[in-house]
Amino acid sequence: MDLHYLTVILLGIVEGLTEFLPVSSTGHLILASELLGYDASTWAMFNVVIQLGAILAVVVLYWRTFWAVGMGLLRREPVSWRFLRNLLIAFMPSAVIGLALHDYIEILLGAPQVVAWALIAGGIAILLIERAVKDQRFHGIADIPTVRVLAIGFIQCLAMVPGVSRSGATIMGALMLGVERRTAAEFSFFLAIPTMLGATALELIKKGDQITSAAVGWGSIALGFVVSFLVALLVIRWFVGLVSKHGFAPFAWYRIVAGVAALIWLGVR
């Protein structure tokens, strides 16, 4: 297989595997650029667009939930309005802070060492939070109080540091604030939709020259999108079942091992 298309498929798999796991998809894509030796700036638009493939997987898997909420909004059902309200409130901190700090975030995206240390620190944090959390009183997204939803939104902003993980920050923040595991994971999935759409829109606006040039090629971008979508479909179902039974510790240990390995590799290459 041509090396270019092998890279396309590998990056699509990495995005689909890691977007919704608490291991940082952005961090893995940054480390992949270092490992595979490709020019990350050339592939910037590719990495942005294939994230939408993973987001589409959430829409497909949870279409019944979105349909029920949409119908509930039309019928003015309070639970549907609370569901929508909580998603929008949790999204607002990342929208405001992400826009304000976009240039600084771009600098961090070029620092693989930051990713490695963030993977390790995040893994340790997950282990500590898993042991400390006992109170899980909220079993539905619409049931989470507004103040706690806003706090989860601010905690999600920690993921602007590459390697922290948007889903990991959101899920751990939700657990600390009394949300049970499955609901915390699904809240992270749903919150990814406005968050990633907003981030993608910002990237498209900031990098308009890459939109027209598509240095990687639109055929490659389409292939990466499809691969990301298909892999994410499988991962989301598996992930929800796993954390409902076993928690998040396996991902914490993976983060620590991956971070240490990355530091060693970056130090000796």
Rank of each mutant, 00 (worst) to 15 (best):
G12D: 04
I152N: 09
E130F: 13
Q51N: 07
V147T: 11
A118T: 07
M71K: 14
L29S: 07
G140S: 09
T146W: 13
R137S: 14
D135E: 14
L52W: 03
V147Q: 09
D103A: 05
G72Y: 14
T65N: 10
H139V: 00
V149D: 14
R85W: 13
S94A: 15
S33D: 11
G153K: 05
I107V: 13
L36H: 02
L108S: 04
S41Q: 15
G53A: 07
S94R: 00
G27A: 06
S94Y: 05
I129K: 03
R131I: 00
L52V: 03
N47V: 05
I107K: 11
T26V: 04
R85M: 09
A44H: 09
A95I: 02
R76C: 03
A95S: 00
G37M: 05
A142R: 00
I9T: 14
V149T: 15
F138S: 02
I144E: 04
E130P: 11
M92E: 01
Y104S: 10
E19V: 07
A68G: 12
I89C: 01
F46N: 09
A90Y: 04
Q113L: 02
G140K: 00
I107N: 06
D39I: 01
S33N: 08
G37A: 05
I55H: 01
Y38E: 11
V69K: 03
V115K: 05
A132L: 13
L87T: 04
A116R: 03
R131L: 06
E19K: 03
S80R: 05
G53R: 04
Y38V: 08
G16M: 12
A54F: 08
R85Q: 12
G37D: 07
P112H: 11
L109C: 02
L101C: 13
Q51F: 04
R64I: 10
F91Q: 04
I55S: 01
A151C: 08
A54G: 11
A57C: 13
E106N: 08
P112E: 12
M92Y: 00
V48Y: 11
V60P: 14
V60Y: 15
D135C: 01
V147P: 04
V147D: 13
I50K: 01
G72E: 13
V149G: 13
V60S: 13
E34P: 02
V58P: 05
D103F: 05
L119E: 14
G123V: 05
R82C: 03
F46S: 09
W67A: 06
V14K: 10
L84P: 12
G122K: 02
L74K: 07
I107H: 10
S41C: 08
E34K: 06
L17P: 10
R85H: 12
F91W: 02
V60I: 15
L119N: 14
L21H: 07
M71V: 12
G37E: 08
V96K: 00
R137I: 03
